[in-house]
Nucleic acid binder design. Structure first.
Length: 554
RNA sequence: GGCCUGUUGGUCAAGCGGCUAAGACGCCGCCCUCUCAAGGCGGAAACAUGGGUUCGAUUCCCGUACGGGUCACCA
């Protein structure tokens, strides 16, 4: 290979570079981070498409935890905007907003207005020169070459490979420009022919590389033989080059990314070597899957088919963000639930996160489990917290309900404090959108009684008599027992036993029990057969309102 | 189709050659109880499959089946 020709070619390909633009200068500009032993540097590297789904949050959480459970670890945001077509305005802000909303914060990287940190810029579009410097070195080393294939030619090759049952791609005899004489290439470039810069692979896929992934464990990968593209014809790098350059010069220690990258890992491995950089550790996370009823199998969650896949869903349904995090933590680390039950009130950040505890196979998303976890999370909140969160949710997604509960905040807080606190708190809702229906009877505007709700085994005349008697004697009581005594007295008067034990032993001996009478009262006061403690509800509604509601049904 | 990878109850999962194969969610039953929720107790329910290796395989090896991923000038 003629150095002079290569040099000439590199000047043509990289007119933006001069002699002082060297790898060494980059190494100097972005020196290794001065961090304590064991500190991990991870990154979230989304393309700015603006779509944020559960999978993004899942892997961001893994990244964030891995960085922040190490002492002085760093979690940064890099925007992979090399593909102009996929760019959506405002996406960066959205990504940051959503992650912050879920309690995940970046230590450095792209922000809504500019960059933060010494290893930027953190947007790939602005790093063109860095990629070119590395690409030029590769070219000069003979590890990269221009390729003039047109789209049509590549398509033809693909078809030929198909009929020959060869592997797809640009390699071996299909790498037609790999050995083009430099003179010829220079000529073509001078003529303004379009070209891409390809990697010159030296690998042999028959040979296997043993590889240790932090999540998947020991793997065996074939060596790469693909002359994949480093720079597109517009001079913008592909993900592959950008990944190596960025994660090297941003001094990433742990690359955490989806397992869909496993198949191109050999490309990256060979590139790291060709560049002479020390590669980071890799953690390939498994996907969150979804059971598809129609096909009857598991599949990747999809934004279009699965509403619960978008982060927006959790906002509109009003799941506490901490519930979603809590659920994802159980998916991320198998021993998390065990730790949680031993540390009920601890912050999840105190959990010793470990990538080796991450599952190698994909987990099915299970909303029932999320609900259970969320009920638990909410049950640990104070009434004030619940009120605050519900208001915040309602303000945005249910304005009518918002005006109801904000009319008298103290009253609303009292509603949420029923059955709260203590050893066995109620677990009534998993998300805030379940609240309006659940507490509707506390507000006259949303309270109504359907007489079909009254127990059928009590005659209408008995029912009316019970209610009108009760309306006369009802008064606000100090404690549950004395309140229930009155209910018992009324029950006995109409032949409904107050002794549940004997009723259960011999139900036919009685007209009914105090349970039936309670149900009558409950329906009159709340409009439904099931509710939290009736005594507490009555006290909250107040004597006047309780009497009015009972009278209305008598 | 090639390559990579995975497969423990319905779901999430412990388990690293020897156990009646944990636990959680869901489901069912019982208890508690004025209903519901919660709580307590109990139950049904699993090592994909065929060959090896071994005194012994859920655990190790090979094949098969079935998932998942990937094979772009997208990331």
């Amino acid at each position: 290979m003629d150095d002079k020709l290569l040099n000439e070619m590199s000047k043509l390909i990289f007119p933006d570079l001069n002699d002082s633009d060297t790898i060494e200068s980059l190494e100097e500009m972005f020196p290794p981070r001065n961090l304590p032993e064991g500190a991990k540097v991870t990154r979230m590297a989304p393309s700015p498409t603006g779509s944020m789904h559960l999978g993004n949050l899942y892997s961001a959480l893994a990244d964030e935890r891995i960085a922040h459970t190490s002492k002085d670890g760093i979690f940064f945001l890099r925007i992979e905007d090399t593909d102009e077509k996929r760019k959506v305005p405002g996406a960066v802000e959205k990504i940051i907003k959503y992650l912050n909303g879920f309690g995940l914060f970046f230590d450095e990287g792209a922000t809504a207005d500019g960059d933060l940190g010494n290893y930027g810029p953190y947007r790939q579009r602005m790093r063109a020169k860095f990629y070119h410097i590395v690409a030029r070195k590769l070219l000069l080393d003979g590890r990269a070459y221009p390729c003039f294939c047109t789209e049509e030619q590549l398509e033809e090759a693909h078809k030929a490979q198909e009929s020959a049952k060869d592997n797809f791609g640009y390699y071996g005899k299909y790498a037609v420009h790999r050995n083009m004489p430099s003179e010829e290439a220079i000529e073509k470039i001078k003529n303004g022919e379009k070209f891409v810069l390809r990697f010159r692979s030296l690998g042999n896929p028959v040979k296997k590389i043993p590889f240790k992934d932090s999540i998947k464990g020991n793997l065996e990968l074939p060596e790469n033989d693909q002359d994949f593209i480093l720079l597109k014809s517009d001079g913008i790098p592909t993900y592959h080059l950008a990944h190596i350059v960025d994660d090297h010069f941003m001094r990433t220690t742990d690359v955490v990314r989806g397992e869909e990258w496993l198949s191109t890992l050999p490309w990256h491995l060979e590139l790291w070597n060709a560049c002479g950089f020390k590669r980071p550790r890799y953690s390939h996370t498994s996907q969150v899957l979804k059971f598809d009823e129609q096909i009857g199998t598991k599949r990747k969650m999809s934004k279009r088919k699965d509403p619960e896949c978008t982060l927006e869903f959790y906002y509109t349904a009003g799941y506490p963000r901490s519930s979603v995090i809590e659920y994802l933590m159980t998916l991320l680390n198998s021993n998390y639930e065990q730790w949680r039950s031993a540390n009920q009130n601890a912050d999840y950040r105190e959990f010793p996160f470990s990538s080796s505890k991450m599952s190698a196979s994909g987990a099915l998303f299970d909303i029932a489990k999320l609900n259970d976890i969320s009920k638990d999370v909410i049950s640990r909140m104070s009434a004030d917290e619940v009120y605050l969160s519900v208001s915040e949710w309602a303000k945005e997604y249910n304005p009518e309900f918002y005006s109801l509960i904000s009319r008298d905040p103290e009253y609303s807080k009292s509603i949420f404090s029923i059955g709260r606190g203590g050893k066995k708190p109620r677990k009534d809702f998993a998300c805030w959108s379940e609240v309006p229906a659940f507490i509707s009877y506390f507000f006259d505007e949303t309270f109504s009684v359907d007489s079909n709700e009254f127990p059928a085994n009590i005659s209408v005349s008995d029912r009316k008599a019970i209610l009108s008697d009760y309306a006369k004697i009802y008064k606000t009581e100090q404690d549950n027992n004395s309140w229930f005594e009155t209910v018992k007295i009324i029950s006995e008067k109409y032949g409904f036993t107050s002794d549940m034990k004997s009723y259960k032993a011999n139900p036919d001996a009685f007209k009914g029990s105090v349970a039936d009478v309670s149900t009558v009262l409950r329906v009159a006061v709340t409009g439904r057969q099931n509710s939290p403690d009736l005594f507490a509800i009555c006290n909250l509604l107040g004597e006047e309102k309780v009497k009015a509601r009972i009278t209305a049904q008598s």
